[in-house]
Design a protein around this nucleic acid. Structure first.
Lengths: 176, 176
DNA sequence: ACCTGAACACCGTTCAAGT
DNA sequence: ACCTGAACACCGTTCAAGT
């Protein structure tokens, strides 16, 4: 990869990170290119679809999040490890406005499968929590993602989101 | 209101209902005007903002949904009435793609406050269910809406949404 | 009063022309 | 190879001109 191409690519990712944080995942691609100081054609050359650009922006973030799961699993009993990781994921997902959907929707692109990495990480924690009897045995990983995604989307900030996650973990029915 | 104005207004609402059902709440307004057989200016004259158009489309639907609550409350114990109504609401919200947010976001427009009507209806059912001890006493109406909205957004169809609603009602933790 | 539709500023996307 | 930026088809929105 030529030096100027590499530099342009990095500048586009940096600009995209900033603009997406401000305007959400529907941010204007022309604006991102402008901010990065390149032509729109250059942006398209590096990232043929919006999905690939978003995946590049999230890559580091998702990898960090998933790497934290092993630490949690070693430090806490399985049930607590799972809920702590769900809270961490919720926080990451809420960092930028409305990125929840984008983050879960993008399929494998350019050798990085955001969704698969999240899925296998959550799957390990979930299986352990179920084996320990802390979580209902019929719960699926996808359902867990859908709930986090939904909460992140419906909620204005982290405190509200955290409250909804608690409600979901404990259930709406009165304790009996 | 002049006869041609009234007719144009109705045609715009009908076209909007159809187009929004197909393309979601971000559907092109020019396309809606075209389909209604009017100029874009006419659409704007009747509905200055997208919100007002969406409110008009939802009005009848929301009123029907809320009217059903009294029937439910008379026919079932409070806890069941609430969950039955939540399921009905989820179904209505899912009728068109991704309308959940739009439906909850629109404020009072033109003498019809979609959100307030839903809120007071759900509030009655919730209070009754809490008084009967069927639902946890700290649950807020807004939280209930956020959960339904979130589930509707994160979910592809009614069966999946219903399953997530069950999980939310019962909680993710294992029964002990 | 009410409607029309041309017009403006934007957006996503492409592609010929340059280096 | 890689980049540029003009160009195209769209969109939301406005407003002068018509009836």
């Amino acid at each position: 990869m030529r030096a100027d191409a590499r530099r342009n690519r990095d500048q586009v990712i940096a600009a995209a990170t900033a603009v997406i944080a401000e305007e959400g995942p529907d941010a204007s691609l022309n604006e991102i290119a402008r901010r990065a100081g390149v032509g729109p054609g250059t942006l398209y050359r590096h990232f043929p679809t919006r999905r690939e650009l978003i995946a590049a922006v999230f890559r580091e973030r998702v990898e960090t999040l998933c790497a934290g799961a092993d630490r949690l699993a070693a430090a806490s009993p399985p049930g607590e490890a799972l809920t702590a990781w769900m809270r961490a994921m919720l926080k990451h997902v809420l960092t930028d406005r409305g990125l929840a959907t984008a983050m879960m929707d993008i399929g494998p692109v350019a050798g990085f499968d955001c969704h698969a990495l999240l899925r296998s990480t959550a799957g390990r924690l979930l299986t352990a929590a179920q084996a320990a009897g802390a979580v209902r045995p019929d719960l699926q990983v996808e359902e867990l993602f859908q709930l986090i995604t939904g909460i992140a989307h419906a909620t204005p900030d982290l405190p509200h989101a955290t409250r909804l996650l608690s409600l979901t973990l404990e259930g709406l029915h009165a304790p009996h």
